[in-house]
Nucleic acid binder design. Sequence first.
DNA 1: AGAATTACCTGAGCGC
DNA 2: TGCGCTCAGGTAATTC
Length: 270
Amino acid sequence: MPELPEVEVTRRALAAELTGGRIEGVIIRSPKLRLPIPPDLPLLLPGRMLREVGRRGKYLLLTCDDGRLIIHLGMTGHLRVLPTRIAAGKHDHLDLLFSGGRTLRFNDPRKFGTVLWTEGNPLSHPLLAGIGPEPLEEGFDGDYLFTLSRTRCVAVKQLIMNSSVVAGVGNIYANEALFRAGIRPARPAKSLSREECDSLAATIRLVLAESIHQGSTIMNFGVAEEPLRYHPLDFRVYGRGGEPCFGCGGMLEELRLGNRSTVFCPLCQG
DNA sequence: AGAATTACCTGAGCGC
DNA sequence: TGCGCTCAGGTAATTC
C-alpha cells in the first residue's frame, strides 16, 4: 500500500513527466470512491496547465492554473503515466488526457482513494488542515514528540500513526521505525524519555528517507503493462511475525494495536 | 481533549 | 473447482 515514500516517489515522477503539460481532456470512468470524484472535472480541467506537483502527507497536490487536484491513493490506488492512449481496464477510475498524447490514469480497486478539486488554499482544505508536521521537514523532531506525548496514554505506535501528530506515517513504517529505534510499540506514549523521542523522530526520518531514495532508483513509472514497483526495502519486522529477528535471532512477536498488525522483537525492543 | 470504534472496499490466501 | 471465511489497512466520522 502506498505510504509516504511511495507517494513521494510518485510525486517526483509526475513532476518530471507532466509539469508544464496541458490538460486536454478528462474521462471519469467510475466516480465511485469513498469520496466521489467530482462530476464537473471534465468541465473544469481542460485548458489548464499543470504547474507543480506537491505533497502534504500522503496527499498529492497537482497545482494547475487557478486550482489544484487533491489526490490520495488510499490503500490500493496508483497513478501511471501512459505514453499513448491505452484501453482502460478494471478499476480504472479516471484519465487525465495531457498534451502530447500522454495520459495520467488513476486506478484503485479498493476505492479508498480520493480525487478532489479545490480552488482555495489547499492547506486549509478540510482534509489537509488538521495534518501534523511533515516528518522530513523542520518542525518534526524529538523535542516536538516529547512535548506532545506527555499527556498521551495511547501506545506510541498509535501516536506516530496519528496524522494530526505527524503526517504520512502508516503501519509499515511505524513498525520499522520502532524496531530500529529499539522501542516497544505498545509503550504508552507518555512513558518515552526525551532520549527515546529523539531517537524515534530521527529513525522515522531515516526509514522514510531511505525508502524514498531506494524507490527513486527503481522507478518504472512509464511502463503501462506492469504495476508500479514500490517497496525496495526488505522490511525488518513488517510482515515477519514468527520469523527470526535480524538483530538477535529471537522470534519476532505479533500483536494488534488499534486493530493494526504490529510486529516487534521482544528482546531488541525493550 | 483524548481515545476507541466503525464504515468504506476488493483481492489474496486459506481450509475444506 | 469453488465456496465461504478472514485479513489487509488510511482516513473520516461518530461516539464515549
